[in-house]
């Protein structure tokens, strides 16, 4: 079983960090993982995306071209990747930043106004993590324990207070639309 994920948006939205978090979820569950960023000048303020693979076996290609899961956080990314999602796959979309509604009926789309949700809940800048929470909810990609362990791993001890706010963001994503 392999999950291939693309996360895409603007530089500064925490796209690469969200991808890293997903990779750590897999790592903590003892699975094989890979994380591959787009890199270059476009990372500074332009578009940013990364490929994440989480698998029970060897990961051949770390570069995802046809994702099972897409997280899109801006319009250019949505336009670029929505038609690459595998049939049967899912797309998680920040509906505040992307007005479009997908017309494909072979994939499942979830629309979440993650950006204003983050602002309203005092966790501005964590829209990316809210979307990760939704991903966790829809795919069951990580255990609750792996999530906490991963956060403890990637958030430096100096910023330990951020663990709780990240957990809160994940929880918001998980419970959205319930």
């Amino acid at each position: 079983m392999t999950e291939e994920i693309i996360l895409a948006g603007f530089g500064g939205q925490g796209i690469l960090f969200a991808g890293k978090m997903l990779a750590y979820f897999g790592l903590m569950d003892g699975r094989e993982v890979s994380w591959l960023p787009s890199y270059g000048p476009e990372m500074r303020g332009g578009t940013a995306n990364c490929s994440v693979c989480i698998s029970d076996g060897t990961i051949c290609s770390p570069l995802v071209t046809e994702p099972d899961i897409l997280i899109a956080m801006n319009k250019p990314s949505y336009d670029k990747f929505i038609n690459t999602v595998k049939p049967g796959g899912i797309a998680i979309i920040d509906s505040f930043l992307i007005d479009d509604r997908c017309e494909r009926d072979d994939i499942k789309c979830f629309y979440i106004p993650a950006t204003p949700m983050a602002v309203e809940n005092g966790i501005t800048g964590m829209a990316n993590i809210i979307l990760v929470g939704k991903l966790v909810k829809e795919t069951g990609i990580a255990s609750a324990e792996a999530i906490r362990q991963a956060l403890e791993k990637i958030i430096p001890p100096k910023k330990a207070n951020l663990i709780e706010s990240n957990l809160k963001a994940i929880e918001m994503g998980q419970s959205y639309g319930q």
Binding site: A23, L27, V33, S34, W35, L36, Y39, P62, L63
Partner: peptide
Amino acid sequence: DGLLGQMMEP
């Protein structure tokens, strides 16, 4: 190459 240099794996 850039792919191996930039990617993360365990």
